[in-house]
């Protein structure tokens, strides 16, 4: 039974997606003109897209439209012009293009850096110090129906044994990050324990992240397999052949030009 015809724009999108995916994957062979084409298109489109996005979501939506509305409703009120302050700071940033007044941009950058640090410091204290202390400090014993008990259940996050592991881990890792104390003697043992804890954590994170990357790869391959169907005009197969032939042709042409040497 013949497959249903897909709209032209869908088929065209599939060809572009499959082609660019294969061009970017050609990097696995080596740097080549097809990869460069994909890379430059990717960079150019992303910059163009972000400029349009900034124009609509920042300039128009956050500055121009609210300013127009406020001035239209209450032109005599100074509050209507408050958005001109961030707008002026934004213009100051652009003065970097005019060397004579480029010093004005430092005012805007000082504001951004100062504001950034001011926001980051209490947030850091909150997330990295207080929250860490709060989650690490737990009682070693719990009061149950049978009186005081120390939990040995590794699956229960707040059991006594997990509290001890957590405490030893946090304290030893913290000690590893002491910089004005040499790691010798007992200090070396503590720092080494801290490194073991760090490496276990990194190993777990590594496995977890690799698995999530595999799912991304599978998703990409699934798209390529879908686009290899008759409904999409065998886009993946045709473009794969074009990519391979182009690479062979480019390799031969370059070798001829360089007298038999590989392009690299």
């Amino acid at each position: 039974m013949p497959e249903a015809m897909l709209p032209t724009e869908v088929v065209l999108g599939a060809w572009v997606a499959a082609g660019l995916t294969l061009f970017i994957y050609s990097f696995l062979y080596k740097d080549n003109p097809l990869f460069k084409l994909g890379e430059h298109l990717y960079v150019g489109i992303s910059v163009g897209y972000s400029v349009v996005l900034a124009w609509h979501t920042v300039f128009l939506r956050l500055l121009w439209e609210p300013l127009q509305k406020a001035v239209g409703e209450a032109p005599a009120s100074p509050d209507s012009y408050v958005l001109l302050i961030p707008a002026t700071l934004g213009v100051f940033m652009l003065t970097r293009f005019i060397p004579q007044i480029s010093w004005l941009s430092r005012i805007a950058f000082a504001f951004v850096v100062g504001f950034g640090s001011g926001v980051a410091i209490p947030r850091t204290i909150s997330s990295y110090i207080l929250k860490q202390i709060e989650d690490t400090v737990n009682p070693l014993l719990t009061m149950g129906a049978g009186g005081l008990t120390m939990g040995f259940d590794l699956a229960a996050p707040q059991s006594g044994v997990n509290t001890i592991i957590l405490l030893v881990g946090v304290v030893s890792v913290l000690f590893y990050f002491f910089f004005s104390v040499e790691h010798t003697g007992a200090g070396m043992v503590t720092a080494r324990t801290g490194i073991y804890f760090l490496m276990i954590a990194f190993g777990a994170a590594f496995g977890y992240t690799v698995m999530s990357r595999m799912s991304l790869l599978i998703g990409r391959f699934r798209d390529l397999i879908t686009f290899a169907g008759a409904a999409y005009g065998y886009a993946t197969l045709v473009l794969l052949a074009v990519t391979v032939l182009s690479l062979v042709g480019w390799e031969l042409a370059t070798r001829r030009k360089t007298g038999g040497a590989s392009p690299e």
């Binding site: 110090i129 860490q132 737990n138 009682p139 070693l140 014993l141 509290t163 405490l167």
Partner: peptide
Amino acid sequence: GKAFIMGVLVLGTALATVGVV
């Protein structure tokens, strides 16, 4: 600062345990 936090962690765990006991 880190030494202080290490002290708080050890003493805090002891204090939380005393609170339960």
